[in-house]
Simulated scan of single mutants.
Amino acid sequence: MKIVVIGGSGLIGSRTVALLREAGHEAIAASPSTGVNTLTGEGLSEAFAGAEVVVDVANSPSFEPQAVLAFFETSGRNLLAAERAAGIRHHVALSIVGTDRMPDNGYFLAKMAQERLIEGSGIPYSIVRATQFMEFLGAIADGSMADGSVRLPAGLFQPIAADDVAAIVAETATGTPRGGHFDIAGPDRAPFDRIIARYLEATGDSRSVVSDPQARYFGGTVVETSLVPLGEAIIGRISLDSWLGAHRPA
């Protein structure tokens, strides 16, 4: 089966492409570096020729609210129009757990706009909503520094390893379209500050971590369950301790 992975050279995309190829599929890593640009439409029709499935794991280069909204709306419209013209049978998109629960988070609002375009496209689809990736724990700590400490919202956190995300996305791409969204998360759920403190300790980082109810996440207000699945979810196989052990500095 020919499967085109938009954002195929990124963190999740490169892993997804590798898994699909290992399973015997013709997986195409599509990105601006390979001549496929979803913002301009360049290369889409050529990439989609003969394909059955499109997987969209691309991300916006900017997290500024208006820029990220423009990215996902423009990219989504161009992608879906090209897919309809090519007769694509399954569109798989990677989104975020809690996207519809944080109305003051500009990034989450942009992902909701992307989801609405998919839902109204007429193309059979599956939307995989993931919790935050373990690979971004360090960046979250760095971006949450204030008054000499890492200040984090008081809600729960349940990060998932990129390898688990890619495995679930690849499996979804080769399955039957779900016609809706489903949640995926890592095995470990704990208060946000506790997860980040475990990461910092494991990496030898002495910064203190503070739980701050006023702290925001990508500009959004966080309550206890904003960032974790509320009901059933597919749980990844890689625990936080296992991931930390594999990524601990030498």
Rank of each mutant, 00 (worst) to 15 (best):
M1D: 12
V4T: 00
V5S: 07
V5K: 04
G13N: 02
R15K: 15
E26F: 03
A27C: 01
A29L: 13
A30Q: 04
S31A: 14
V36P: 04
L39R: 14
E42V: 03
S45T: 15
A51C: 02
V55L: 08
A58Q: 08
V68G: 09
A70V: 04
E83F: 10
R84Q: 15
A85F: 02
A93W: 01
D100R: 10
P103G: 14
Y107H: 12
F108T: 09
L109W: 06
K111H: 10
E119K: 15
S126Q: 09
V128Y: 06
T131A: 05
Q132M: 03
G143W: 07
A146P: 05
V150S: 10
R151D: 06
A161C: 08
A162W: 12
V165I: 13
V169C: 07
G175V: 04
P177V: 11
R178P: 03
G179P: 08
G179K: 04
I184N: 06
D188N: 10
D188F: 00
A190C: 09
A190W: 05
G204Y: 10
D205H: 03
V209K: 04
Y217H: 11
S226L: 07
V228E: 13
P229F: 13
A233T: 11
I234D: 04
L240M: 11
S242Y: 02
W243T: 12
G245V: 05
G245Y: 05
